[in-house]
């Protein structure tokens, strides 16, 4: 019996090690590459461990932005422009992701409340049609939206991107929150109604304060989804005033004139906010991702 347990553990840890190499290895390789100098990156045979560790790539992005200095890549032109659009895009992505999380949680909560609590005809039709919205391919909507945005002068504009991202995020938010609201005991609500609270007061004073964990989950998922959005960001943005970090990452990745270490550092910077969010709030995220699925 003991023998069997030992082999079981050996197998489990071997499998875990394989898992780590496959799923974390590529990410660590990217981080490690970003800590090298350009000449180490382009060395054949390959440099396995950065020696010395260098923050030159990050310095290039930050210094280039503020002081117009090309720290690493003296031979490559326009690197200061690249780092400048990079930092701006980082800020834009942050503005979009935070606004989308905030507004989709607020609007989503009010839309989820009646589905969870009120008794009206078409309640499930409403929920179902909100979900079906997610089946429409983004590319089908992209064509008219780009035309509208151009006509109304709303292209190259963060507000447009915030609105579009909300339409992707809201169905998830509503689904998640209505499931969460249903877990709150109705007695509290009934008591408040007896005391003369109307539905808005009930939602604001009882349901929403009691749903902070659910709202947090919804907000984090909204942040992650909108931070990573690419298609509309690509189509709507035109200049550095609205470029998002995904647009710039794609631009760098497809540009032969940008040196590797800058591309890689830009990639690492673009994943830092979502990865940190994901690890920090992992309990919320896992419960949120699962609550939707299990109820389905």
């Amino acid at each position: 019996m003991k023998r069997k347990n030992l082999t079981r553990y050996i197998l489990l840890y071997l499998a875990s090690a394989l898992f780590l190499v496959v799923f974390i290895g590529p990410f660590l390789w990217l981080v490690s590459s970003s800590l090298q100098l350009e000449r180490q990156l382009v060395k054949v045979p390959i440099v396995w461990l950065p020696d010395p560790l260098s923050l030159a790539s990050y310095k290039e992005i930050f210094m280039g932005a503020f002081f117009d200095e090309a720290v690493v890549s003296s031979h490559k032109i326009s690197s200061s422009y690249q780092s400048r659009i990079y930092l701006g895009s980082f800020l834009n992505s942050g503005i979009i992701a935070f606004s989308v999380s905030f507004f989709s949680v607020v609007f989503g909560a009010y839309a989820a409340y009646p589905i969870a609590r009120l008794n009206f005809r078409g309640r499930y039709t409403l929920l179902f049609s909100i979900l079906v919205v997610r089946l429409v391919p983004a590319l089908a909507l992209a064509i008219p939206i780009v035309l509208f945005a151009k006509k109304m002068g709303m292209n190259d504009n963060l507000v447009t991107l915030i609105l579009i991202n909300m339409s992707f995020v809201l169905p998830y938010t509503i689904w998640l929150l209505q499931a969460y609201f249903k877990t709150i005991p109705t007695e509290l609500e009934d008591a408040a109604r007896m005391d003369g609270c109307n539905r808005f007061q009930v939602a604001n004073k009882i349901i929403i304060p009691l749903s902070i964990p659910g709202l947090t989950t919804a907000g984090i998922l909204a942040f992650l989804l909108s931070w990573g959005e690419f298609l509309f960001a690509l189509l709507i943005t035109e200049t550095e005033q609205s470029f998002t970090s995904t647009v710039v990452a794609a631009m760098f990745a497809n540009d032969v004139d940008v040196n590797y270490v800058t591309i890689i550092a830009a990639g690492v910077l673009a994943v830092i906010p979502p990865v940190i969010f994901a690890l920090f709030f992992q309990k919320y995220i896992i419960s949120g991702l699962l609550s939707g699925a299990v109820k389905n």
Binding site: S16, F19, L20, F23, I24, P26, F27, W29, L30, S33, L41, V42, K43, V44, I46, L224, W227, G228, E229, F230, S245, T246, A249, A250, F252, A253, Y260, I263, I264, G267, A270, V271, P274, V275, F277, A278, L279, Q282, I285, I286
Partner: peptide
């Protein structure tokens, strides 16, 4: 392990592509 699994999930698609483009670079 379960927490670390969230890393690939949290990486935006575009950066995921950038990551693999680098891993698969023809020369480096």
């Amino acid at each position: 392990l379960r927490a670390l699994l969230l890393i690939p999930w949290a990486i935006p698609d575009v950066v995921n592509a950038l990551l693999w483009k680098w891993l698969l670079h023809p020369a480096f």
